[in-house]
Structures are given as C-alpha cells and as structure tokens.
C-alpha cells in the first residue's frame, strides 16, 4: 500500500539528499493533522539515508529512468495519494511539474513554508523575488507541493524503524536521453544546502583572488560553501551554479557573508531569507548594508583574512 501522504526522495548517487528530510517535516505535520499515514518514496532498489523513517517505498525500476519516464511511472504510483510533496531542486521541481500535468492538478511550487490549521493545509510562496508572501490552498486531489531547500527544519525520527516495501512499475519508452557531464571534483555542498555561504562579487577583482574566500569557508568547516553574484559567473570567474539571486539560485542559509557585493535588488532577492547576513564592502553606501545584520566597511582583502583568523580562533 502506498501511504496517502508521500514525500518523493531526492537522491544523488544512491544517497538521499538532506533536503528530503525537510519535506518529511511537512509530511509529518500534515499527517498529524489529517490523520493519514505518510511515507517516503525512493526511486531505486537500494538507497541509503532513510533508516529512521517509518515507511519507505522503493520503486525498484526507476534508478536509471530519465525524467519523462520517471514522471509517468510515479504518476501511477501516486495517483490515489492525498498529498505528494518533494524538495524544489532542479530535478524535484521538474519531476513534480510533469507529474502534476499527468494528474491534471495544480502544483504549489517552490514553497517556503506551510501552515496547518483545522485540517486545512496552506502553502506559503515567495513572490516578486521574496518581496511578497502568498498563502495558497489547493482544491484538487492530490495536493502537490515542492519546498525550497532549507525552508523547513529537517525531520529525524531517531530510531532504526524503517518498514520498507518494494513496488515495481512498468516503464514507458523514453523521449530523451540524459547523461551526466563530468564536472570538477565535487568536494563542497551545493549552495542551496549549505548552512554557511561565503559569497564573492565583482569587488573580488578576479578569479585568482578567490583563495581568501576559500580560506574563510574552510575556517567554518565542512558545512560552509561558496557562492557568487551574477557578474562573477557571467565573467567565468566562478561556476554558474554558484550564482545566487533572482535569475540564479534562491538560498536561505543560516549565515550569508557577502564580500565585495553591492547588494542589487536582484541579488538580494536570492539571499534575503538567510537567517544572518554579514556584508563586507568598502563603500559605506552600498545597498547590501541595508539588509545586513552585521556590516564591515573596509577593503575586503584586509577584512576577510582578519575575519578568517577570528572565526578559526572560535572553532
């Protein structure tokens, strides 16, 4: 039996990505309110990282399936569900939009929160680059939603209690082929999943200067990663998936440190939901200081190494 409330796991290399646990928090809250069972669906026979989640359904045939095949197969698996939810990653948003169309229902996409009241579930979406929040309700079934990474706390059940079942589905003929393009060794967290994000802008003056930011990130340890403003990735100084903002990735880390970034409205749109923002800029009138919790006016090539030393001291 497929639980009536399901979370579709986002996986990378047979491991469940941490964002999945955030969606589990939503599932558990809804399950408590509407009194329905919930579980996680994983698209492969062997995936690790869900040992404490009470109900796990493995769809054993989907590991290699391309997005269109995966979407039509999971549509059949989830057809009778009341709620279908997933993290709004590139793959998650994609899969859920396809499934929602197969099921001919709306999708509350890229939600930043939810409210549960009197068995009514409402989703919160950030509009206009986060400048407006909208509360929406879905009147179709299943109710489908994707959540922006780091918008909800992670759920840890804390015991090894998984009851696993396996289902098989028939796969349609794929409409496309997908291959992974090798990239530089991935030794850092993605910008959307890191707790701490160190970001550089045009004030960094060039790619060869990034060492100071890498050292600051290293001082914070493995939970920190790097990001950048748009001109930086446009110039090829940094990889494009580090670009944050209204046309880049929207992130909400615990700590965002902006170095040599002016704080244009399109940049701030992507980072305003960070819990704490630190800005380092030599221009006291830079707009980034308007959204910063802590600001240091000065030359970043002096400030960043000093901050790195101070952060290291506190480790």
């Amino acid at each position: 039996m497929i639980p009536r409330i399901v979370v579709l796991a986002d996986t990378a290399a047979q491991v469940v990505r941490p964002v999945t646990r955030e969606v589990c928090t939503a599932a558990q809250r809804i399950a408590d309110a509407v009194d329905l069972p919930w579980g996680v669906i994983v698209p492969a026979a062997s995936v690790t990282g869900l040992e404490d989640i009470p109900t796990v359904v493995r769809v054993d045939t989907l590991a290699e399936a391309v997005p269109d095949v995966r979407a039509s197969a999971l549509t059949e698996v989830c057809r009778e569900c009341a709620y279908v939810m997933m993290a709004h990653t590139t793959g998650g948003g994609d899969l859920m939009a396809r499934m929602a169309q197969h099921l001919d229902v709306p999708l509350a996409a890229d939600c930043v929160g939810l409210t549960v009241e009197d068995q009514q579930v409402r989703f919160v979406r950030a509009l206009y680059g986060g400048k407006v929040l909208s509360t929406v309700r879905i009147t179709a079934r299943p109710i489908m939603a994707t959540f922006r990474p780091r918008s909800l706390p992670s759920l840890f059940v804390g015991e090894n209690c998984a009851v696993t079942q396996t289902v098989s589905v028939e796969l349609a003929t794929p409409l496309s082929t997908v291959s992974q393009v090798a990239e530089a060794v991935r030794d850092r967290l993605d910008v959307t999943e890191a707790d701490i994000v160190i970001s550089g802008g045009r004030g960094m003056q060039g790619p060869e200067q990034w060492g100071v930011l890498e050292e600051l990130a290293a001082a914070f340890g493995p939970r920190a990663t790097l990001a950048c403003s748009r001109p930086v990735s446009d110039n090829g100084w940094r990889p494009r998936n580090e670009h944050v903002g209204q046309t880049g990735r929207a992130i909400s880390p615990d700590l965002y440190i902006a170095c040599g970034i002016s704080g244009a409205i399109q940049h701030v749109a992507g980072i305003a939901r960070s819990r704490c923002i630190v800005a380092i800029n030599k221009d006291p009138d830079a707009p980034i200081f308007k959204v910063a919790d802590y600001g240091i006016v000065g030359d970043l090539f002096d400030v960043v190494p000093a901050l790195t030393a101070a952060i290291r001291q506190l480790r």
Partner: peptide, 9 residues
C-alpha cells in the same frame, strides 16, 4: 490553486 492572502515579509 486559490491565493487566500498576500502579505509583505
């Protein structure tokens, strides 16, 4: 998909 309320953060 019913938008019930808009607010400023």
């Amino acid at each position: 998909l019913v938008c019930e309320q808009l607010r400023l953060p």
